[in-house]
């Protein structure tokens, strides 16, 4: 039986090749060491170490958007982001995709309105949401804030 190349304690279940400075090193990792090295939960670990044909899918760990919980792998399947925060959550991975589509990765042109006006629009939107959710205490706070902002801008 082959033992894990890293911890040398548990039986090796995941065979992999590591490239160090251009040199390919074959090694075998146990379940725990493989997981800590970044192989995803989707790997089908063969619990029988003696079995010759160990089948597994070595994939990198999926990344999830903290806001809408969409996984990057799901985005790749549907081609749809789940919320505005997905752009930041998947920032490392979408550069090539955007370049392929638009031949560019940065926005050029105008944004949404003037700075002061934008704050006011945000507050108005939050106020409408608070009223809709019947959170009248929060609505009153927002109303006062809007009033103050309008007064300041005048």
């Amino acid at each position: 039986m082959e033992y894990c190349s890293k911890c040398q304690k548990r039986p090796g279940e995941v065979k992999c090749v590591i490239v160090v400075k251009g040199e390919r090193i074959k090694c075998c990792l146990c379940h725990e060491c493989a997981r800590s090295a970044g192989f995803s939960e989707q790997i089908k670990f063969n619990r029988k170490p003696k079995s010759p044909g160990i089948r597994f899918i070595a994939e990198k760990r999926d990344v999830f958007c903290p806001n809408c919980k969409l996984g990057f792998s799901q985005f790749l399947q549907t081609g749809l982001f789940g919320c505005p925060s997905c752009y930041n959550a998947f920032e490392k991975f979408i550069g090539d995709i955007l370049k392929g589509i638009h031949s560019a990765t940065y926005h050029k042109g105008r944004g949404p309105g003037k700075e002061g006006l934008q704050d006011l629009t945000h507050l108005k939107w939050k106020l409408s949401e608070a009223v809709f959710a019947e959170d009248f205490e929060r609505a009153a706070q927002l109303r006062d804030e809007i009033f103050r902002l309008k007064k300041d801008s005048n």
Binding site: G79, L80, F81, G82, P84, Y87, N88, I94, I97, L98, I101, H102, A104, T105, Y106, H107, K108, G109, G111, P112, G113, L117, Q118, T121, H122, K124, W125
Partner: peptide, 28 residues
């Protein structure tokens, strides 16, 4: 677009522009 801009806050980032569900439409 400019009239709606006064009523609702649009999702926008200085890098990706106006944010859309499809990556084919973000930016302008």
């Amino acid at each position: 677009e400019e009239s709606l801009e006064n009523e609702v806050p649009f999702a926008y980032s200085s890098r990706y522009g106006f944010l859309t569900s499809r990556p084919t439409e973000c930016g302008t």
